[in-house]
């Protein structure tokens, strides 16, 4: 997907973490508890990176 530099920027772990934070905030603002649970789980799941 795209040139290597852009691809590495898009899929950088910091970018993914930032996106998860954005999704969590959006979930709270949107007021949907289901989305907050998904964001919570996704954040915890991604935090385990490095264990595999």
């Amino acid at each position: 997907m795209g040139p290597p530099a852009i691809r590495r920027l898009v899929w950088h772990p910091m970018t993914i973490a930032g996106c998860l934070a954005g999704v969590a905030t959006a979930a709270v603002l949107a007021g949907g508890p289901g989305f907050a649970w998904i964001a919570m789980g996704a954040t915890a799941g991604f935090a385990t990176s490095g264990s595999v």
Binding site: W11, H12, W37, I38, M40, G41, T43, V52
Partner: peptide
């Protein structure tokens, strides 16, 4: 929702790693 989110979060690591590069340098970036 939490279980699905957790699985997706873990899958993000796999997708991110494989999409980032072919030399496993995603772990180094992490």
């Amino acid at each position: 929702a939490a279980g699905a989110g957790f699985g997706l979060g873990r899958a993000l690591m796999t997708v991110g790693n494989l999409s980032f590069s072919g030399d496993n340098s995603w772990d180094d970036a992490w």
